[in-house]
Structures are given as C-alpha cells and as structure tokens.
Design a protein around this nucleic acid. Structure first.
Lengths: 197, 197
DNA sequence: GCATTATCATACAATCTGTATGTATCCTTA
DNA sequence: TAAGGATACATACAGATTGTATGATAATGC
C-alpha cells in the first residue's frame, strides 16, 4: 500500500490545481461563453471545489483574465516564431498575418480573445494584454515597411490600428468558414497597396 | 377634478412603458455595461417594476437586443442621409465613413454596438442586426467603386469585411480620443489605394 | 354591460457570486 | 523533530439576480 498521492510540495499542489482550473475554465468559457459559465461548473469539471478557485483567483473575472493571457501569449509566440527568419519588413507582415490566422484558428481563441475578452475585461485591458504581444510587433513592422514613404508617425499608428483590426476580422471570417487563402491574399494586396510609395 | 391620466388606449400604454424601459436600459447598459446592469435597476430607473419588463420583453437579452437594434438603425439612418446626394462611389465611401464616425461618436454607441453587442448577442446575430443596415451599403459601395478593376466578387466581399472592420476600429480609436480628422484621412487613403486600378 | 384579454405589480423558487469559516497538509525554526 | 504558523483547499453562508407564477386593474370585443 503506497501513500496515495501524498508528499507533494506546495508548489506542486498549486501548479496542478491552477492548471486544472484554467483548463476547465477555458473549455467552458469557449463552449458556453463567459456569462453562461458558472464557477460551480468550472470547479466541478476540474474535480475541485469553489474554495480552490477563490484561493487561486481573486474572482471570476481574474480567472478569465488568466485564461485570456495564456491564450494571447500562445498566439504571440506562434507569430514570433514564424517571423523570426530574416525577411523583408513587408514579407514579415504578410507571413505574420498568415501565422496569426493559423494561430487564431485554434478552437476557442476567437471567442476568448476577440468576442468575450473585450466585453468582459474592457477594451483597454484587452488591448494591454496583447499590446505587449502582437500589436507592438505589427506597428514596428508597418513602420519599417513604410519607412521609405516618410509617413507621419501618428498616421503610422493609426494605420497600424486599422490593419490590426483587419487582421482580427480576417481571423473571425476564417473561423466562420471563409477561405484562409482568400483572406491571406486580400490582406497581402492590402499591405502591398498601402506600403508602396 | 380631471380623471388623472386615465383613458389611455392599450397601445399608448404599451408604447410609453416600452420606451421608458428601453431608455432606462440604454442608459444603464452604456454606463455600467450589460453584465453589471440588473433588471431591478432598470425598472427602478424607469419608475416601473420587473413585471412590466418581462411582459414586454422575453428576457434581459431580448431587451438588450431591442436597445441595440434601435441604435443600429439610428446609425444606419445617419449614414444613409449623408450619402444620399449624388456622389461618386469613391466619394460616397469616404463621406459614409465620416458619417459613420460621427454617428458612432454619440455616447454609448461604441459600447452597445461594438463591445457588448457581439459578446451578448453573439457575432452572427450582431452581424445580422447591422447587416440589414450598414454592411450591405458598404459592400455595394466598394463593388461600385472597384468596378473598373474587375475584382473577383468573393474578394470584393472579403475586402468589404476588412474595410468594415477598419471603420469599426477607427470609431473605437476616435472614441478613445484619437483625432477624427486623422482617421478620416487615413481611411481615405486606404480607400484610394485599394480602389485605384 | 360582461366576458375576455392585455398591462403591470407582487410573490416565489432556483441559481450564482463572493466571503467567512473550518480542516488538513506543508513549511519553518528552534 | 516537534511545535507553531502558513498555505491549500473544502464547506457553509449571506446577498443578489434571473425568470416564472400568480394576482389585480384597466381596456377591448361582442
């Protein structure tokens, strides 16, 4: 007779239960949406109780934020990996867009990051979450690609914001069944036309 | 002594209470968001009880839908009025964009139509609400403006979706303090570059 | 005028969130 | 290594919310 699963360090305990809660929450947030997911459902799916949830997370919203952050960093990592090679700025933009579409194609990311996220956490907090991630990279890429055109920096920022919105919409449409090829191509011409002097 | 306010037809009663509930709900949805607005708060602000609310609306979500629809039609009307004059397709797009920014500048419309709407009603239902309104007009305008370029219709649709997303983002940024002029100009060049053969 | 229906108020049951409290396990330190 | 304390988690509770069921009043149709 072994001692069940005893003798676990506190760090181990916390890590496994945190992960269990995050995984269960992610699944339910994705399938039912944030509002229609109850904390009893989450902890039940994780095989725990609400005590564990409220010990590790301040409230339900903080749990959602943790889920969204984990997802956003995963997307950012995918983009960074795809654009790491030595590409021209313009090509990096196109490749990055394609990588973004693929990353957002993972089930649930659309809902977490583009639908529920802004409504639950607010526009600004949501922007902050992936500002540290994707947005900054995009803005730098655009600035670099448009360097020869000598555009005012404020206009560059506006353009970056608009392009980023187009990326998001493309991901949404693709998740809705639209062709990834079609949108990658359309985004490509959009970039070419904007970047050309 | 007059008879208080009696002798009102049923239609009149319903119309006034429906309007009172819609107005109160709009105000609270805007200031606190959908999730943090309770039905007791709404009817209290309207000087009624929850009985009236649930008599006129199936549930809280249906009430939000009614508010969002009213708002979307107001925006569509503003655009339609601005673009009614005889303009070239390309000019109509720019003028329409400007009218859209102005219309979305009315307090609360951003939150109702761009933040809470998609999360509460779902992406598709939200699209349906202003598909009958703005989206269709935009797609036709783009098709008309790009007619000489002979672009595949599916690509035209994709482009319209991406541009529409850019419009939304511009409205969001403007609501956040960005310059309307800057974004109108940036959208203008975006249109010019895309439409030019 | 009377029966019926529509409008709105009140009462109720179920559910959810966040907190308070209790218990077991782990960690520190003397 | 044996307290003493902190950490991890479970259980219990209070307040609030949603949707429904029931009741009362005013309007409408015959």
């Amino acid at each position: 007779m072994q001692q069940k699963t005893s003798r676990r360090t506190n760090r181990e305990r916390s890590d496994t239960t945190r992960a269990a809660i995050l995984d269960a929450a992610r699944g339910l947030f994705v399938s039912r949406g944030y509002a229609d997911t109850s904390t009893p459902d989450i902890v039940s799916a994780a095989g725990l109780t609400r005590g564990a949830l409220y010990h590790h997370f301040e409230d339900k919203k903080a749990l959602f934020r943790a889920v969204a952050e984990r997802e956003a960093t995963a997307v950012a990592a995918a983009i960074e990996q795809a654009t790491a090679k030595g590409l021209t700025a313009r090509e990096a933009l196109k490749v990055g867009a394609r990588a973004y579409f693929d990353a957002m194609n993972h089930p649930g990311r659309i809902r977490l990051l583009l639908l529920d996220g802004p409504a639950v956490l607010g526009k600004h907090e949501m922007m902050a979450i992936d500002a540290a991630n994707a947005q900054r990279t995009l803005e730098e890429g655009i600035a670099e690609a448009m360097a020869p055109a000598a555009v005012a920096p404020e206009k560059l920022a506006a353009l970056a914001s608009l392009l980023s919105a187009a990326f998001d919409r493309a991901a949404l449409d693709i998740a809705d069944g639209a062709s990834t090829e079609l949108y990658a191509e359309t985004i490509g011409t959009l970039i070419d036309r904007m970047v050309s002097t």
